[in-house]
């Protein structure tokens, strides 16, 4: 492992000042960063430990939403009764992720910034456009089974590996960040980016900025929501395809719906086409299938991950049936 200096931030301001120097990384739960240090993928000169900073806890907001401090651990967020009752899809996404130990360590802000688990990205002996720009992408003709099918580019087919972020994408969460120039915020769909010709950047987070909080806007039908995850073993594995969804049905008609897919793209994939297709439609198997087909029409899988298209459709349709239970 490359050597690095270490300091403990005493305030958000002091952390931002340190992060202003290139080569500096913030250390939160460390569950991904420390692993990447060991692998030589991340090679910072200075780590700024932000674990003792107080970013606040979990607070209800006036519109029925929640404000979550960036330092809140995944386990505490999943266990919070407001989260479990208002937004069960978020609690379920968190509980499907990693292990009990890792959820105790991982922070809300850090979890948003975890890197892809593409095996080529994680292996410094292999080319990778995300880690080493211009070196090529051996994943596209190579081991692509776990990788992306939507929004991929000729330079990168990596997937965002997270679960929490998929639920937050369905919920249209706001990412609050602080910079030396003052605070700013991103709708989560604008926070994450597609790889395009520059896969090195996972997000639009400005250099040297720090995530301070995540805000979930109120969503009355958030209570009718769930998260499904298909993976190679029943627990403690990254998702192949995941679905976060919330459904609002009245008199057999879809009034509103929120859907995001995980494991399929460089970013958590808001299924806007499927959502639009479903609004105002009768709750039937046919409308669910049509919505899934419309969303997945743009998929460009490899030979190895073509199964994800069919899997995503079944997962999406199955999840909608579950949420519509009793209305069909």
């Amino acid at each position: 492992m490359k050597t690095f200096e270490y300091e403990r931030a005493t305030s958000v301001r002091s952390a931002l000042t340190s992060l202003g120097t290139p080569g500096t990384k913030p250390l939160a739960g460390g569950t991904n960063l420390v692993d990447l240090l060991k692998l030589g993928v991340e090679r910072p000169d200075l780590l700024v430990d932000i674990n003792r900073l107080d970013f606040g806890g979990i607070e209800p907001t006036d519109d029925g939403g929640l404000l979550i401090g960036a330092g809140v651990r995944n386990s505490d967020l999943a266990a919070d009764l407001l989260v479990r009752t208002r937004f069960p899809l978020l609690a379920k996404a968190l509980l499907s992720a990693a292990s009990g130990q890792l959820r105790n360590m991982a922070s809300t802000g850090g979890n948003l910034l975890q890197r892809t688990r593409c095996t080529y990205f994680m292996d410094t002996t292999k080319p990778c456009n995300k880690r080493d720009p211009g070196s090529g992408c051996p994943a596209i003709p190579g081991a692509s089974r776990e990788l992306g099918i939507l929004g991929v580019s000729n330079d990168c087919i990596a997937t965002h590996p997270g679960d929490m972020a998929v639920a937050l994408t369905a919920l249209g969460a706001i990412i609050h960040v602080d910079t030396l120039d003052g605070p700013t915020s991103f709708e989560i769909g604008e926070f994450y980016r597609l790889p395009g010709a520059d896969p090195t950047r996972d997000t639009n987070l400005p250099a040297g900025a720090l995530i301070t909080a995540v805000e979930i806007p109120g969503l009355p039908f958030g209570a009718v929501s769930t998260y499904r995850k298909a993976r190679d073993r029943a627990s403690y594995a990254f998702g192949l395809v995941t679905v976060a969804a919330a459904l609002d049905v009245e008199d057999g008609i879809v009034r509103d719906v929120r859907i995001a897919l995980g494991g399929v793209s460089h970013k958590p994939w808001r299924a806007s086409i499927a959502e639009e297709s479903l609004r105002g439609k009768l709750v039937t198997a046919r409308s669910f299938e049509a919505a899934a087909d419309a969303e997945l029409a743009a998929a460009t899988p490899t030979e190895q991950n073509a199964f994800k298209v069919a899997l995503a459709k079944r997962m999406l349709v199955g999840t909608l049936h579950e949420l519509a239970g009793g209305h069909e």
């Binding site: 270490y6 420390v34 692993d35 430990d49 890792l102 360590m105």
Partner: peptide, 13 residues
């Protein structure tokens, strides 16, 4: 009091 992976915890932290 909480379980954690000591291999992913930096001792300095």
């Amino acid at each position: 009091g909480r379980r954690a992976n000591s291999c992913l915890t930096l001792a300095v932290s």
